[in-house]
Computed example of a mutant assay.
Amino acid sequence: MDPSQQIEAASKFLLQAPPGEINDVLNDVRNIVSDDESLQAGLLPALREYNLAQFTTADVPGHNHQSIISEAARISKPSTEGEETEESDRFWDPRSRTSFRFDHLSLETSEPEPVEPDEESEPFRAALESASLTYLAAHYHDGVTSVFPASGSTSRYYVQIVANKYNPSNYWSGRWRSEYTVDLEERTLKGRILVNVHYYEQGNVQLSTTHSIDLPLPPTITPSSAAASASKVLALVEAEEGKYQTSLNETYTEMSEKTFKGLRRALPMTRSKLDWDKVLGYKLGAELSSNRGMFGSS
């Protein structure tokens, strides 16, 4: 396999890395591509794609909170030819009005700069952010939320939430991602919830689900009443996420009680239940018979 094929194979492994395990995958693929310099350069596009899609979180320079790294957070987009540049790896945190450079390999931030938000869209964005932080504190033990205005629009916003739970000592990890587009002009709330869980004790099982949401916005949600309207948007989010969580619980209960039991034979080939007391008696009798054969009968 030539180096380019090795890089391509390694990139595919990276893009399928379970939550919180990308460093483990990186260390494994180093055995495929022995040249670290070529490995880092060749895998950078895959790392960038992974971090953006997985809502990787980053420490905001000079502040005590994290922001989500995503396509919506990019300040500069790739060139028209699709080429990534150093400037396309600059992101911003509207909450602190700070932009920064993000290293997709080390996951570190640097070169902070102040950013002034759009005056027209900022009031409603800030209200959505405040409502999102309240919702996050009430429903997520350890999560991060970011709210971004859509580029070139003063009526469309992205609400993003990510929560990670890594438990390597018990061989599992998980990630919840949700993203919602609030469009005040089209009067819609569209979104998706993505859940990834990896369980790998004496096996390798992954769960990957996607749930889409498409709701009309009530007429009472307007830019003029930003705080009240933002709370109503997050109430819709809360209801949808609650219903989805309930449906997941019901699905797994049904799988445990019906689906998995259906995969096992209820009775042995004799079509009757085993009497374990008799089985122990048979074993004891066999051992006694064997001993009599060895030492002779009295």
Rank of each mutant, 00 (worst) to 15 (best):
G152E: 06
R177F: 04
G62A: 11
N23L: 12
S132H: 01
F100W: 04
T109C: 06
K258A: 10
V144A: 05
S290R: 15
N249Y: 11
L15C: 00
E250K: 09
P216I: 12
R95S: 04
E108K: 10
G152M: 01
L128T: 05
L217I: 14
D89N: 07
P216K: 07
I75G: 09
R97W: 00
A163E: 04
P3L: 02
I32P: 08
Q40N: 14
R175Q: 15
L236M: 15
R101L: 05
P219Y: 12
V29C: 07
V197S: 12
D93Y: 09
L26H: 10
S212Q: 12
E49A: 11
E116R: 06
Y252I: 11
L133M: 03
M269W: 01
E87C: 11
P219G: 12
E129H: 03
A230M: 02
R30P: 04
K232Q: 12
Y140D: 03
I161V: 10
S151A: 14
T259V: 15
A10C: 03
G191Q: 03
G143V: 13
D277V: 00
Y282N: 07
A235P: 09
L128Y: 00
K261S: 11
Y180W: 06
E86N: 10
A235T: 13
P61T: 00
G82E: 06
Y157G: 03
G293S: 15
E81D: 15
L44E: 08
E113P: 04
V159W: 05
S225W: 09
D142K: 09
A126Q: 03
Y180E: 05
R264S: 01
S88R: 01
G42C: 13
L15K: 10
D277W: 03
Y200D: 00
N27P: 04
E254I: 09
G152V: 02
Y140L: 04
M294R: 13
P216L: 00
T222A: 03
G20E: 06
T209E: 07
V233T: 14
S11F: 00
L234W: 14
Y166V: 11
V205M: 03
F148C: 02
E83S: 11
R95D: 14
D35E: 10
Y252H: 08
A163T: 10
L194S: 13
